[in-house]
Design a protein around this nucleic acid. Structure first.
Lengths: 122, 122
DNA sequence: AATGAAGTTGACAGAAAGGTAACCAGTATA
DNA sequence: TATACTGGTTACCTTTCTGTCAACTTCATT
């Protein structure tokens, strides 16, 4: 048995950190926006419950993927942005993205269709 | 908004395909063994129920990550091996693995400890 | 007839994940 | 006074996931 490809334990951690229905979309937004307010993020992701989005964000903050900044003004403003650690995931995520597009394009298409259907609510 | 890093939709697909409590370990074995019999795999993964392992394998076969080969001998023999599509995941998985080891080593260590504790049964 | 191997299936339980709706605080605005 | 905004919390519910256990299949051997 040789361990050339990957050792699977860190893999487990990485997948745990990424698992969560909305985390990919959250990352997507944070990768492209350098900072975003909670409500804006919420409005940009159709169909998430506030509570669930909050939970995801909390986990991601605890995992060090994102940074939360609270500005003490009177309608409170909370900004989220990606951390260095989160940014470091970029290449790995891009590799997964590529894999899916090259080897699983049918499934990607299915997902796209599902999403189209899912819009029209809220 | 620029899409330099990743586009997230294929990401979703990739993560879906990888999500499942035992899939990383299964991949780990298949990456290092070119073929393995069901029962051997089962014996090598501590604490999975047969049924759950079977379900994971079925999903992974349906997703095209692995190949199932049934040899019609008299105590039936079923071999699993990684497919080309599965192999193509190698670099992406290695990237995740690296990320975890470089940026999340504490969490990896936690996981290792948890696993140590979990052994001692079955 | 009984045993064993490799796999499959079903009943069922418990845990985890995801989701709804209502509510709070403090300020602002109509 | 009533309403709205923002970021959260709380209680509650439903769905999905994971797991155990037992039973069953098929051919070959004992």
């Amino acid at each position: 048995m040789n361990y050339t490809e990957f050792k699977h334990c860190g893999l487990n951690v990485a997948l745990e950190v990424l698992s969560g229905k909305w985390k990919p979309i959250i990352l997507f937004h944070l990768f492209h926006q350098q900072e975003i307010r909670f409500t804006d993020l919420w409005r940009n992701i159709p169909k998430v419950a506030k509570k669930v989005l909050l939970e995801h964000l909390k986990q991601m903050e605890a995992d060090g993927l994102i940074v939360r900044e609270e500005r003490q003004v009177f309608p409170p403003e909370v900004y989220y942005r990606i951390s260095e650690k989160g940014k470091a995931l970029g290449p790995a995520l891009a590799a997964l993205e590529n894999w899916a597009n090259e080897h699983a394009s049918a499934q990607v298409q299915e997902l796209r269709d599902k999403k189209k259907v899912a819009n029209g609510q809220r």
